[in-house]
Nucleic acid binder design. Sequence first.
DNA 1: CAGTTCATATAGCGTTGCTATAGGTGCTAG
DNA 2: CTAGCACCTATAGCAACGCTATATGAACTG
Lengths: 239, 239
Amino acid sequence: MSIDGQLPPKARLLRAAAELLANSGGSAVSTRQITQLAGVTAPTLYHHFGDKEGLFDAVVAAGFDEYVAGERDFAPSGQPLEDIRRMWDNHVQFGLKQPELYLVMFGNIRPESRPAIVADAEALMEEMLNKAAVSGQLNVPPKEAARSILAANVGVTLMLIAEKVPERNLELSAMTRDAMIFAVSTEQARNNGSDDSGKSSVVVAAIALNAALQASHSDQLSSSELKLFLEWLHRISTS
Amino acid sequence: MSIDGQLPPKARLLRAAAELLANSGGSAVSTRQITQLAGVTAPTLYHHFGDKEGLFDAVVAAGFDEYVAGERDFAPSGQPLEDIRRMWDNHVQFGLKQPELYLVMFGNIRPESRPAIVADAEALMEEMLNKAAVSGQLNVPPKEAARSILAANVGVTLMLIAEKVPERNLELSAMTRDAMIFAVSTEQARNNGSDDSGKSSVVVAAIALNAALQASHSDQLSSSELKLFLEWLHRISTS
DNA sequence: CAGTTCATATAGCGTTGCTATAGGTGCTAG
DNA sequence: CTAGCACCTATAGCAACGCTATATGAACTG
């Protein structure tokens, strides 16, 4: 009934915390449970991780690697918007497969304190949206699009987790997902069709150029020139 | 430093809990703080509310009345989709004005346990969407639309709460809001324009009829007939 | 006036996150 | 080979937590 692979105590603590978290069924996990399962006493935990939240952050960091791995595996399909769609689904699946871990990662909200992991997830989403922007498929700057899509993605996942398993309807996820992706994509990207439904093409061009510049680290402009240039572009794209 | 308006202890507990929650700044609020501020001892709390969560539920119920009042005041504009838009904004404003209360209401997620308040908020949203459905402005059954919009609405609000006040950008809310409303509305509703962008008109008609039937309590059909009829309509609307 | 019910208080249980202090272990320097 | 030092872990226990067994007072009801 204890974790013992002769691993160092730090690793045993991580493993014990992760295991207890996964099987807690939503109820809280105490440091005493963790240290007992790890075969270690309390001060060891605080020596390595500072406090309980520090240990949980470490568990989350490991969980995030797994999350990112899932996101990256599906990446290169050639169609950026299709990748975003898979990214959304992978996010939801991750949350439903490990709800407790997900709740620690994305459900532990406190006013004015943004967990590092949210910023990481946002950056990941933005990076992928950048590819769409470069090829002129984005209606909106990648940063704003990423924040918006991620917010909806988290909201849907939290709502699904709160529901009882037999009642979970993934249609909710699919519908919200398509709504968000549709909203940020250009008409061209939607069906290789005609014009851009009211969005002037100069704006779309500015967004694409902006993304391309940030991605390519062009050295045609000095860093201060580039900064100003990007600022203008951003102002155009968000107007 | 205590709440004393000679109110009965039950009311004093509610008021003390609400006040401490509002000023907690995100950190936890203990039963001891609450009972001390209310000028009452511990067993009184448990006599009236069962446990800590029971007390918080009661506070939330009061907060929800305030929330609903805000939602209903803006209601009758004649344009249901515009009302949904205001409902969304009111939801976000409520969350940003009282973040701690909001987090207890919508941010306290646990696996497979849906707080009653979420169902209430969903019902409120659905009721409003029904009006849109009756006049053929809805692309999707009201129930599904309500769940989807609410999920995104909560996700955005939580994300904004987690951000530091000076960095909170309401554009995130507006953008996500319009994306969701756009996605559930018919082409006709969007700009009183032409056709329905691929959505067959029989589906839209079925959705509108479905909503109208549920709203009017028609007695042309027996209750069992009505039930079956509604089931068919729902099947058509979601196909 | 006796009996019952409701509301509050006294005192304390078990658990929580965390720590002051001390002891053991393995490395490197002389 | 040993002295010293840095690192790691354990003993023991504190203050705060949610909650409750039990008792006392007050207010109706027969």
